[in-house]
Nucleic acid binder design. Structure first.
Length: 770
DNA sequence: GTGTAATGCTATTGG
DNA sequence: AGCATTACAC
């Protein structure tokens, strides 16, 4: 039980209080993950069967890592049997087990956002509605919001208030579209992301025996990042926990950043109401960051009205002040960040992986990437277009999906004429009309043209039957061949590889490589008999799938809910991380650069309408800042390209909200000479003259002060081994070795009392003494 | 039906 | 700026 000694008082209480409802309010960096891990380990050491513990995490990767750490703590391989994963993946598994009860095939398809929007678009088109009024994006978001608040299509029709609202906003047919969308998903044997949760509550509500089974199964339930759960998720928890009420939720209201997709901080308050005997433990000691960072973060969040009382503090060192930088342009901002990373690496010999660049929107990554490339700093961009969203991958996956589930209409439409095989728009329109007239699925019409009088010429008829025969042949292989065999067969037989190979472009080449990467993953999957990331321990022996064969079906289920964040990068780990703040949740880095701190970008223009939205942006900033362990850097640009044109943003209000005693205010970072020409050309004088906020005047002064006391470096072009040099920080030293060529020439220098250092000449500012 | 060029449109955050 | 749709020639 030595792990208990590694915990502070409230942490230990939260771990040991295993029975009954518990809520842990955990400030940023307060050892929340540690509590979860030790709590589960503690349960297991008390003899609780891991099969009876359900732990819901925010990402699958988090689940995998936690399992690993629990396994280390308790030893043996029992930790494998824990039920651990995201809401979506855990309940997708359960839904597959129980699918027949709600009329779905157990191999139902999961529609991603693109599939869902494409279906909505089709529906709007089919009904001849105005697609300016009924935009797929808006429809999807509204449907999603409904489902998250437990309003089904049927319930919507009964909801006169909502119907009225739609009439007012001139979208009277929304409810109809919603209903049709739902029906079409059902017909296609598909669920969207929100359905996975909604159908779970319905399953538990309508089938008492099923509810009982899972209540009895999960004696202990733990939920991480509780502040980011939505109503449906909370309902599922309540249903499952109703029997034993051993439910422990962990979260931080100050870090709630997903209200935009239905998360409710309200859940934290409701929890205490719903379980009146809840024990609340507050973790307020921060172990992650310096005092400066913790205090600065506190001073930001104090601007929010909506918050639970919590005082985060730390015993860590005071640390350096938060550095604020102003750049002239977005590109210069990138260069500044890259230079500073280089400088810190050079001075402190720090690894790339110790750095993170965080931004509000994915579009901001480009300027950063370009700058890092110029400096030869390896980096990795998280999020954005993930691997599984690339066109060629989606195409191949669509063939897989269609082979597994021929009713999957989105997959069918995607691949029936890719690669081009002469089945065009006209033909498809005919088939779609015929299908809806006969209430048949699109596939049925295409596969049995004789049963429907499709008015199509013989040539087209043949091409269609070639296609359906091919898909059927893929289907017959599903039971007998492993995922990799079928996968590589389909890649060839479908003509995708041929199509890409014929195109002699670099892009096509990289697409082929991506397909190869997918096939490699499938190969690994097929040969690997170890359990998948989220195990589904056998509920009933009869359902055990202990066959040796790893099927395509299983592979598809495995990857359907994977995201970029779930991939572990085994090989090249030493890279600077680039990601949105949202995806940085739960992570920490010694050096954090938060970029683009400008009004209308961060906070986002779209979040300025209500206090609630602005406060969410502020929490987002709080999350960003609290990722940093040692040093945080903030930056903004005086001009930025957005939507193809130049804008002149003002610095973000968030900078001013931080108590200035924690900040080191901006100095004008000069871009390095080889870039300044280009920058000046692009950023027209206007950008510089643009009036900025008051505090920028201060920075001009600071600049001047700085300039006068500056250390003047020599030109080091003639530097040679053996020379005596002086460094601003390390003092006198002797050059031992010179490597590389300018501008990336590196020197190994021995400094008295400091030791040997590797320095990049362009940053090290060495003075030649003799 | 297919491929390319021109035009038009629309912009967060993500499972 | 980048993408998706449309217009047009083959």
């Amino acid at each position: 039980m030595n792990y208990l000694s590694e915990l502070n008082e409230p942490q230990r209480k939260a771990v040991e209080h295993t029975e009954g409802p518990v809520m842990v309010l955990a400030g940023a960096g307060s050892g929340k993950t540690r509590v979860l891990i030790y709590r589960i380990a503690h349960l297991m050491q008390k003899g609780i069967d891991p099969f009876r513990i359900l732990a819901l995490t925010f990402t699958n990767k988090a689940a995998r890592e936690m399992k690993g750490r629990i396994a280390e703590t308790v030893g043996g391989n029992e930790a494998q049997n824990l039920w651990m994963g995201t809401f979506h993946s855990v309940f997708a598994k359960i839904l597959r087990f129980e699918a027949e009860k709600i009329g779905y095939p157990s191999s139902f398809t999961i529609y991603d956002t693109d599939d869902a929007k494409s279906l909505l678009k089709t529906i709007v088109k089919e009904r001849n509605l105005d697609d300016k009024v009924y935009k797929p994006n808006m429809l999807y978001n509204r449907i999603s919001a409904c489902k998250n608040s437990l309003i089904t299509a049927a319930a919507y029709l009964e909801h006169s208030e909502l119907i009225n609202e739609d009439h007012q906003s001139r979208k009277p047919l929304f409810s109809e579209i919603f209903k049709t969308y739902q029906a079409r998903c059902f017909k296609a044997g598909a669920m969207d992301f929100d359905d996975l949760l909604l159908k779970t509550t319905e399953l538990l509500r309508d089938f008492p025996d099923v509810l009982y089974k899972y209540q009895d199964k999960f004696h202990y339930i733990l939920v991480d990042e509780f502040q980011d759960t939505n109503l449906v998720q909370y309902l599922i928890l309540k249903q499952l926990a109703a029997r034993f009420e051993n439910i422990c939720v962990v979260g931080d209201d100050a870090q709630s950043i997903y209200a935009f997709r239905g998360a409710k901080i309200q859940n934290i308050l409701d929890f205490q109401k719903d379980y009146s005997d809840t024990s609340v433990y507050k973790l307020e000691q921060n172990y992650r960051s310096t005092q400066n960072i913790v205090n600065a973060a506190n001073s930001i969040i104090s601007n929010n009205r909506e918050q639970l009382h919590k005082q985060v503090w730390t015993e860590n060192e005071a640390g350096e002040k938060i550095k604020v930088f102003k750049a002239l342009t977005d590109n210069e901002e990138g260069l500044t960040v890259a230079n500073q990373i280089f400088e810190i690496q050079n001075n402190l010999q720090s690894k790339n992986s110790n750095f993170a660049i965080l931004y509000r929107t994915n579009a901001q990554s480009r300027a950063m990437e370009e700058a890092l490339r110029k400096r030869n700093i390896p980096y990795r961009v998280y999020g954005g277009l993930s691997f599984y969203q690339r066109k060629e991958i989606k195409d191949l996956l669509a063939y897989f999906r269609l082979s597994v589930n021929q009713k999957d209409e989105e997959a069918l439409k995607r691949v029936i004429n890719y690669p081009a095989r002469g089945i065009g728009q006209t033909t498809m329109e005919k088939a779609i009309v015929t299908a809806s007239e006969n209430t048949a699925s699109l596939w049925e019409v295409l596969a049995n043209p004789n049963n429907f009088n499709l008015n199509i010429n013989a040539g087209t008829q043949n091409r269609i039957s070639d296609f359906t025969t091919m898909i059927k042949s893929f289907s017959t292989m599903l039971e007998t061949r492993n995922a990799f065999d079928i996968g590589s067969h389909i890649a060839k037989a479908s003509g995708i590889l041929k199509d890409l190979n014929e195109e002699q472009s670099i892009e096509a080449q990289s697409r082929v490589e991506n397909i190869e990467a997918l096939l490699n993953a499938m190969k690994e999957f097929s040969e690997n008999h170890a359990p998948p990331p989220i195990d589904l321990p056998d509920l009933e022996q009869s359902k055990a799938q202990d066959s040796e064969l790893r099927t395509l079906n299983e592979f598809m289920q495995d990857i359907a809910l994977l995201t970029d964040a779930d991939k572990d990068n085994k090989t090249d780990t030493d890279r600077v991380s680039l990601m949105t703040i949202h995806s940085a949740k739960g992570l920490e880095f010694p050096y954090v650069f938060i970029v683009g701190l400008e009004e209308n970008l961060f906070p986002s223009q779209l979040s300025l309408n209500t206090r609630a939205e602005l406060e969410e942006e502020r929490r987002l900033f709080y999350v960003a800042l609290t990722r940093a362990k040692k040093r945080a850097h903030l930056s903004y640009a005086a001009s930025r390209y957005r939507w193809g044109s130049l804008t002149y943003p003002e610095p973000s209000r968030f900078i001013e909200e931080i108590d200035s005693k924690f900040l080191e205010m901006p100095r004008k970072e000069r871009a390095f000479s080889f870039d300044s020409n280009r920058i000046n050309k692009r950023a027209k004088p206007k950008a510089v003259v643009q009036p900025l906020r008051v505090f920028n005047k201060k920075l001009v002064k600071m600049n001047q002060a700085r300039a006068t006391g500056n250390f003047v470096a020599d030109n080091t072009d003639n530097l040679q081994a053996g020379m005596q040099v002086e460094h601003q920080r390390f003092g006198m030293g002797k050059v031992l070795k010179l490597e590389g060529i300018q501008p990336n020439q590196k020197a190994t220098v021995f400094f008295q009392g400091v030791g040997q250092k590797q320095l990049l000449l362009k940053f090290a500012k060495l003075k030649i003494i003799g």
